[in-house]
Nucleic acid binder design. Structure first.
Length: 196
DNA sequence: GCAATGATTTACT
DNA sequence: GTAAATCATTGCC
């Protein structure tokens, strides 16, 4: 069942990041559905330095984070990688969850094609830049709704025990000072599709 | 207007 | 292990 705005617009971004583990992320492009199970997420909030919207500073790039929860925030990093976030909380509260890794589930052949791979291995979706390429996500997805468009998150009916979710510091934000140490990264314990 | 830089990946030494 | 690729966004360093 597709997740609704009641899920995305809750106030606790950490809880949402945690609960997204085990859910399914899918895109539909040219009639082809691709997607997988979310096994790794990171939470971001305007209250801490790791976030683009730190200090509630609104810019053209991060404006979608200030909109209602349930939208996609996609942006280009290092000039060549698209990163996909889920915007959470209500309008004017800039919080989001970065999806960092998926376990491939639907449209694996198509995803391999997009990634230029011939074999299915953990290279396919084990990283934020990789999974966006595999799902065909690009900047045109920025600001799209996850409620009624060609991208959505589904509660696959799987129950994930809190004991199977591990919290750890986030990746690649050393510039954020003490906030870089916050244990806001969530991974599915023992899953081989989690990035290293 | 321009220079610095990154929520990364990949290839190469 | 280290470095290059490569560009939108940001702030004037």
């Amino acid at each position: 069942m597709k997740l609704g705005e009641d899920f995305y617009q809750r106030k606790n971004v950490l809880q949402i990041a945690q609960q997204l583990i085990g859910k399914g992320l899918f895109t539909k492009s040219n009639g082809v559905t691709t997607g997988g199970i979310i096994v790794e997420t990171e939470a971001y909030s305007w209250k801490e330095k790791g976030c683009h919207a730190y200090g509630a500073k609104k810019t053209q790039r991060n404006a979608v984070m200030f909109d209602d929860g349930g939208l996609a925030y996609v942006y280009l990093c290092y000039g060549m990688h698209h990163l996909f976030n889920v915007v959470t909380n209500k309008a004017n509260v800039a919080e989001a969850v970065l999806v960092r890794a998926l376990e491939p589930l639907v449209g694996i052949e198509e995803m391999k094609l997009r990634r230029g791979l011939t074999t299915l291995d953990r290279q396919l979706t084990s990283g934020p830049g990789k999974l966006t390429k595999a799902l065909g996500i690009n900047r045109t997805f920025n600001g799209k709704s996850l409620l009624n468009g060609e991208i959505w998150i589904d509660d696959l009916g799987t129950k994930i025990s809190l004991r199977d979710i591990m919290a750890s510091p986030r990746i690649g934000i050393d510039y954020a000072g003490e906030d870089a140490a916050l244990p806001w990264r969530y991974t599915l314990k023992g899953n081989k599709w989690v990035s290293k």
